[in-house]
Design a protein around this nucleic acid. Structure first.
Lengths: 229, 229
DNA sequence: ATCGAAAAATTAGTATGGTAGTATGGTAAC
DNA sequence: GTTACCATACTACCATACTAATTTTTCGAT
C-alpha cells in the first residue's frame, strides 16, 4: 500500500484527518478496488491508534467506498455500475430541476465565476492534472447550485458522488473525454446566459449520460476494478 | 431522558443496535431537538460502553440528526426548514423521474403490494399509530422505486430523509393531514395503473409540496424544535 | 502426498482509562 | 457591583487492552 499522505492540518481532529486521507486515496484509485485494508495497517502507516481509523471507516462505508465484513476484514468497494447508474439518474433529475431555476434567475457575479472556472479547466487540461480537473469540474456544478440557493442539495449529491468520481478518474486515465466535458460546460454556461432552457436540458442529459456509453469500454479496459454482475 | 428502547435483536452488533435506538427516538421526537446528549449518558442507559455509542453518534451526525461540538458536547439537531425544503426539492425531482419510469412499465404483482400497503395505512390511521403510519408511507414510495429497479436511488433518499421524517411526525402531532396523504397515495396508484403521467406528476407535486404550507404553521406551534434563521 | 483437526494469527467489535479542551461556579481583588 | 482568576466538573477525543469471530498455518495421522 502506497498512500498519498498530506500533513495533518492544525485544528482538525485525527479522525477527520484519517478520513480525508483515505477518501482521497480511494477516489484517485490509489487504493485499488477490491483490495483489503485493515484498521491496524492504516493506523500503523499514519501513526495513529485504531480508534480514529475505525471511525473514518464507518464514515466511508456509509458513503459506499468501503465495505466492512464484521470480524473478517474491510475492503475497498468495487465500482458498481448499478450504483453509478443510479447516481447518474439522480444527478440528472436534480440538475435538470436546478437548471430550470438557474434559467429563471441567476446572479451576475456568479456567471463570471463560472467563466473563470472554465478558464481554469482549460489550464488543467493542458497540464493533464486529472484529479484537479475533476475537482474543478465539480466546483463548476456546485457554483450553479449555489446561484440557485441549492447548496444543500449539492452537498447531498456530494454524498452519493464518490462512486461517480472514481469512474470519472478512470475515464481520464483512459483518455476518453476531457475536451468534450469542457465544451459541454461552455454550453451549459451559454444556456444559462441566454436563458435557453431546452438547450440546457439537452446538454445536461448528454453531459451526464455520456458516461453510460463509456462504461462498457472502461469495464473491458479495467475489469479488475469492477464488481461482477 | 426517557428513551423508547427495544430489546437488542440477535445477530446485530451493539453499535448498530445503539444506532437504531437513537435514530428512532430522534425521529419520533422523543429526543427533543436542541437537547444535549452525551456518550456517557446513553451508554449508561443502554448498558453498553461508550465506544459503540460514539460510533452511532458519528453515523447520526453524518445524517444530520446530531451535531457534535468537539470537546463541548453533542446535541440533537434542530429541525432546519432550509434543509427540509431542499430535501423536498430533491425528492420531488427524483420521484417525478421515477414516476415517469413507473408509468412506462410496472410489474403487476407490485401493484397488489401497493394496494395492500394502502389498506394497511387505513388501519394505522384508525389506530392513530403515527410512527408506524409514517413507516408504511415510506414503504409505499419505496415499493414504487423497487418496481422501477431504482431501489438504490431510494436508499440514497433515505439518507437525507430523516429530517423530513421529523417534520412529518410534527404534522401528525398537529393533526394536520392523515387522510389527505392517504388519498394522494390512492391517486398515485391510480395514475400508475391508468398510465396517466400528467395526473401522477401533479399529485406528486402536491403530495410533497403540501408540506411547505404547513411549515409556517408548525413552526408557530412548536417553535422550540426549530432552528433560528 | 493428502487430509483433517488443533493451534496460532489476524480480524473487527467492545470496554476502559487517560488527556486536552471547554463550561461553570466560586472567590478574591478592585 | 464588576472583573479576573482558579478550582472543579464536565465534554469528546484518542490510545490501549481485551473479546469473539474468522482465517491461516501447522503438524500429525493415514
Amino acid at each position: 500500500m502506497n498512500l498519498e499522505i498530506e500533513k495533518q492540518k492544525y485544528g482538525i481532529t485525527v479522525g477527520d484527518y484519517v478520513y480525508e486521507v483515505i477518501k482521497k486515496n480511494i477516489i484517485n484509485l490509489n487504493m485499488v478496488p477490491g483490495s483489503r485494508v485493515s484498521e491496524k495497517e492504516i493506523s500503523d502507516i499514519l501513526n495513529v491508534s485504531r480508534t480514529p481509523v475505525r471511525e473514518a471507516f464507518i464514515k466511508l462505508s456509509k458513503e459506499g467506498l468501503l465495505y466492512v465484513r464484521p470480524q473478517r476484514g474491510t475492503y475497498i468497494d468495487y465500482i458498481d455500475l448499478g450504483v453509478v447508474e443510479d447516481a447518474r439518474f439522480i444527478r440528472e433529475s436534480i440538475e435538470k430541476s436546478v437548471l430550470k431555476l438557474a434559467i429563471e434567475k441567476f446572479p451576475e457575479e456568479l456567471l463570471d465565476v463560472l467563466q473563470e472556472n472554465i478558464n481554469a479547466q482549460k489550464d488543467l487540461i493542458d497540464q493533464k492534472a486529472y484529479y484537479d480537473f475533476l475537482m474543478m469540474d465539480e466546483e463548476f456544478h456546485k457554483t450553479i447550485f449555489k446561484g440557485c440557493n441549492k447548496e444543500r442539495a449539492w452537498s447531498f449529491i456530494e454524498q452519493i458522488n464518490s462512486e461517480y468520481k472514481r469512474v470519472r478518474m478512470l475515464t481520464f486515465f483512459a483518455d476518453i473525454n476531457w475536451k468534450d466535458v469542457l465544451n459541454q460546460h461552455v454550453q451549459i454556461l451559454e444556456s444559462i446566459k441566454n436563458k435557453d432552457e431546452q438547450m440546457g436540458q439537452e446538454v445536461i442529459s448528454n453531459h451526464i449520460n455520456k458516461l453510460i456509453f463509456e462504461q462498457v469500454e472502461l469495464k473491458k479496459k479495467y475489469p479488475e476494478y469492477f464488481k461482477e454482475d
